[in-house]
Design a protein around this nucleic acid. Structure first.
Lengths: 241, 241
DNA sequence: GGACATTTGTCCGTATGTATC
DNA sequence: GGATACATACGGACAAATGTC
C-alpha cells in the first residue's frame, strides 16, 4: 500500500509551484551563484518528493526566467539572471497584433528615449576619456559599415550599451540592451529605413559623442531626440489614427 | 511505420523549443487575444506531433512568460502578457545575495527615479483636472492609513501607477508598477522604515500633487528626489563600501 | 578514436483532482 | 449530484547529448 509515503496532499497549492519555490530557496539558502551546478533531476525528485515530470515542468518554468539553465547531457545550473524573459515577452507582445504594434513600438521608443534623455546629466557627470573614446570608436564603426549589415547592427547595439556604462548601474544597462533587442526585432515591420533616415541616425550618434566630449548636457539630450526622430516619423505615418 | 509523419528529426533544436515556437506562431497567425482559448493538450499533441510531456513542458515555459495561462480543469488560454516574469526575475535577483542586494536595490531606485523624474515634463503637459483629483485622493488615502498597513501599501502602489497614467503609455505604466512590486518585496530587507522617513515620504507625495496642480515641473522633479531620499539614505547606510 | 557512465530529452500508460454543464 | 472534459501527477522505459577514461 505504501500509504506512509504520500497519503494525501491537503495542500491547496499546486505541487509544481511548491517545487519551483523550493528550488529557488535552495539556490538562495546555499548562496549559489550563476553557473553553479544544481543536483541532478533524480536527486531533486528524491529531495522534493516529486515525480520527474512535475520536477521537470518546474525546472522549465525557472529556465524561462533564466533562474536556472539546463544543458542536455550535462546537468542543471544556476542561470545568468538575464532579462531574456523580458525580451521574449515584449517581442511577443509587439508581434501579436501587426495592426496594433505601432502602439507597442511607440511605447517602446518612448521608454528608450526616456532612458537616454533622462540619464543625460548623470552620464556626462561620470564620463571619462576612456568612455568617450569607446563611444567614438563605436560611432565610427557604425558609419563605416554598410547600412543594415550585421556588423552595423552589432555596432549600434554596442553604442547604446556603452552610453549607459558610466552610470555603473547594471539594471539600467541590461534594460537598455533588452529594449534595444526588442526594438531591433519589432521595428523592421515598419519597413526598411531610407538612406536619408540612416544618415540622420548617423549624425545623431556623432552629435551625442561630440556633446559628451564637450560635457554639454542640453546638446546631448537634443541629439537623443534627433536620434529617435526618424523612427517616430515612421510610426506616426503608420498610425491609423 | 508511419515514416511519412516524422521519420527523423534532422533538426538540431530541441522538440520542446520547436513546440513553444509553434504555439506562439499559432497565437499570432490566428490573431488570438488575451483570454482566448487554445486547443486542449491532447489536440495540441496531435497537431504538433509531440508527447504530452514535451507539450506540457513547452506550455510551462510560455506560462512563465504569461504568454499562455493554464486553468486546471478548464483549459489553456492566451495570457495577459503582463510583466510578471520581469517581477519574478528581478525579485529573485534581489534576494539572491543578501549581502549584495544593496546594489540591486540601489540600481532599482535609480530606475524608478529615472522614470518619474524623466517623465516629469510630459506628465505635467498632459495632466488634466481629473488626474490631479485622482492623485489627490491617493495621497490622502496614503496619509490616512496606518504606516505599513496593507491599505497604505496598496495606496502607494496606486499613487505611482496614477502618476504615469496621463502619458497614455502602457509600457511605462506596467514597468513602473513592476519596479514598484520588486521594490516592495526587496526593500523590507533593509529593515522597517522609521516614522520620520514615513513622514518624509508623505510630504513628498503631497509635494508632487501640489507641483502637478501648479504645473511646476522643477518642483515636481524636486519632490521626486525628496521621495526617494529616505531609501537612498538607508541604502547608503547598509552599503559596505 | 572508442567504450562507458552520467544526465537530460522524449514517450507512453494510468490514476487523480478540478471545473463546467 | 452526476456526467463530462480537462489539466495535474505518477512511474517506467528508451533515446540523445555530454564528459571521462
Amino acid at each position: 500500500m505504501r500509504s506512509d509515503i504520500k497519503p494525501v496532499r491537503p495542500d491547496r497549492t499546486l505541487l509544481r509551484q511548491a517545487v519551483t519555490d523550493r528550488i529557488k530557496t535552495y539556490i538562495i539558502d546555499n548562496r549559489l551563484r550563476p553557473g553553479d551546478s544544481l543536483p541532478t533531476e533524480t536527486e531533486l525528485c528524491d529531495a522534493l518528493n516529486a515525480s520527474r515530470s512535475s520536477l521537470r515542468e518546474a525546472i522549465k518554468t525557472l529556465s524561462a526566467l533564466d533562474i536556472v539553465e539546463v544543458r542536455h547531457g550535462s546537468g542543471t545550473f544556476v542561470g545568468r539572471l538575464s532579462l531574456s524573459s523580458l525580451v521574449e515577452s515584449l517581442t511577443f507582445r509587439g508581434l501579436l497584433s501587426p495592426g496594433d504594434d505601432v502602439r507597442a513600438l511607440r511605447d517602446l521608443v518612448d521608454v528608450r528615449q526616456l532612458f537616454e534623455e533622462g540619464m543625460a546629466g548623470r552620464i556626462i557627470d561620470r564620463l571619462d576619456e576612456a568612455h568617450v573614446a569607446s563611444l567614438e570608436r563605436a560611432a565610427a564603426e557604425l558609419e563605416r559599415c554598410a547600412p543594415g549589415s550585421a556588423p552595423q547592427i552589432k555596432a549600434d547595439r554596442q553604442f547604446h550599451r556603452l552610453l549607459m556604462e558610466p552610470l555603473g548601474n547594471q539594471l539600467v544597462s541590461q534594460l537598455t540592451t533588452a529594449f534595444w533587442d526588442v526594438h531591433a526585432i519589432v521595428a523592421p515591420y515598419l519597413g526598411m529605413s531610407s538612406p536619408q533616415e540612416d544618415a540622420e541616425a548617423m549624425a545623431a550618434h556623432r552629435a551625442m559623442v561630440e556633446a559628451a566630449r564637450r560635457r554639454d548636457v542640453d546638446a546631448f539630450a537634443a541629439a537623443v531626440v534627433q536620434h529617435y526622430a526618424p523612427v517616430r516619423r515612421r510610426i506616426a505615418a503608420a498610425d491609423p489614427g
